[in-house]
């Protein structure tokens, strides 16, 4: 087996909740609590889950935009978990990010050329003309005109901005791109353009994606494998076809059932999950899903299920399934 572009083991991120003038820590939010996964070159692993499940935090931890509380991060085989900023720098170029908000992720005071050229300036000591040529090529690759490099970020539409963000992420030819809800803010017609672009780039350059999304439709389209997260933990991980055809975890089932299907003939009475998503500050005991689970038994309330392999490439954390 080829070496994964990224592997994390037992990844944890706890945020202290501080109150009062003395900033005493009164509680801990366990945003990510023991996540293990690996992504092969050219593969798309999708992280799905609802708000507060920790999926975005996993992405930021992998890029070391945050310091993990525990666990290990291996980028192309190198343990980068505790590297300082300077030691981390050479590794950064191999893993880049595409952000959700096409507005906030581009500095409105810079031109497209400066935005896309910044990573090149940092790593490849490229002269002005060479850099301009590279930026022009990148812009054209993502479907913008080369002359667009002189325009300011705020002069572009949402979809074009997302293309700019992709060009910036591509600049250093990374092996991994973390796409954090990269198409969620876009209208469907533009979303289709961006999804096609991402898939073309993967085919062309063998980029691996950690594709973070709440939208199962998008995930089913772009993903190779799917990891479903709930309150900081992966509850099920399997190849796409398995997840959608034969989900094992009751939460995966409920997520799939809840997504509205754009076909009026498919309207059926279906399981609607009751209750709210609990807070990650006081996660439920035992299996974290037991408060909303339609099949929970006494054991689920006390004993946390481990993520265990049930078939080749299919892992699930449930006492009752399969």
């Amino acid at each position: 087996m080829t070496e994964p572009v990224v592997a994390v083991q037992g990844l944890q991120k706890y945020f202290p909740v501080q109150r009062g003038i003395l900033r005493r820590t009164v509680a801990t939010v366990r945003a990510v609590d023991g996540v293990t996964l690996a992504i092969a070159p050219g593969e798309t692993l999708c992280l799905v889950g609802e708000s507060g499940c920790g999926k975005s935090t996993v992405g930021r931890l992998i890029l070391r935009l945050m310091q993990p509380t525990g666990g290990r991060i291996l980028l192309r085989g190198t343990d980068v978990t505790t590297l300082g900023e300077a030691a981390m720098r050479p590794h950064r170029r191999h893993a880049q990010m595409v952000f959700q908000d096409p507005y906030a992720s581009l500095n409105p005071r810079l031109t497209a050329g400066m935005i896309v050229g910044e990573p090149l300036e940092n790593y490849d000591d490229m002269a002005g003309a060479d850099r301009r040529a590279k930026v022009a090529a990148l812009l054209e690759r993502v479907g913008l005109r080369a002359e667009a490099m002189h325009k300011y970020a705020f002069e572009f539409s949402g979809g074009q901005r997302q293309r700019l963000g992709i060009a910036r992420a591509l600049a250093l030819d990374p092996g991994l791109i973390v796409a954090d809800e990269a198409v969620s803010a876009l209208d469907v017609s533009v979303q289709a353009q961006v999804l096609n672009l991402l898939m073309d780039l993967q085919e062309e350059r063998g980029i691996a994606y950690l594709f973070i999304s709440h939208d199962l439709g998008v995930v089913e389209h772009i993903g190779h494998r799917i990891a479903v997260m709930y309150l900081g933990q992966i509850v099920e991980l399997a190849p796409k076809a398995t997840i959608f055809a034969a989900p094992l975890h009751p939460y995966t089932e409920a997520l799939i059932a809840a997504a509205p299907i754009p076909d009026p003939r498919a309207r059926t009475e279906r399981i609607v999950l009751e209750g709210d998503i609990p807070s990650a500050m006081n996660p439920p005991s035992g299996c974290r899903f037991h408060t909303r689970c339609p099949i929970a038994v006494a054991r689920c309330r006390t004993e946390a299920p481990l993520l265990r392999q049930v078939a080749a490439g299919h892992a699930v954390a449930c006492h009752l399934r399969p």
Partner: peptide, 12 residues
């Protein structure tokens, strides 16, 4: 027609 074709949603 374009809108419908561009949705990646699952249609059984």
């Amino acid at each position: 027609r374009g809108l419908m074709a561009s949705i990646p949603r699952r249609r059984p």
